[in-house]
Nucleic acid binder design. Sequence first.
DNA 1: CAGTTGACAGTCC
DNA 2: GGGACTGCCAACT
Length: 129
Amino acid sequence: MPDRGMPDSSPPPLDFGGAVLMVVDGIPPGRVMTYGDVAAELGSRGARAVGRVMATEGSSVPWWRVVRADGRPPAGHEVEALAHYRAERTPLRRGDERGVDDGGAAGLDDRHGPHAYRLDLGAARWSPS
DNA sequence: CAGTTGACAGTCC
DNA sequence: GGGACTGCCAACT
């Protein structure tokens, strides 16, 4: 058998990114997972590597369900993620929940920054099992 | 082939 | 409770 003149130039069907997308896609609505948890699920500790995948192929998965260990959504998408959290009833920690309906510009109106809201990981953290 | 970057995490002050 | 430094892993230049 003759050799393999063709150095298979086809990429593997399931690489690191594929596994990440699969885990993220397995996160149910109303729940969130930290980058570290996703990486740990893959047997890796490259939390940053997971974030990198989300930045490239994340457009194909509910990226808003993947948040940081601080309880903050991905950088540059805080506002976009907030819209999804409110729609999915994800446990948020805005200092004090006063009803989803604040009646006005509240929600994006923060005194500490453009978006100082945080997720309640203690209640929204989900583990695949 | 090596250095740099990046949608992070964990620990110390 | 928040800010700064270091560590890790994968992809890009």
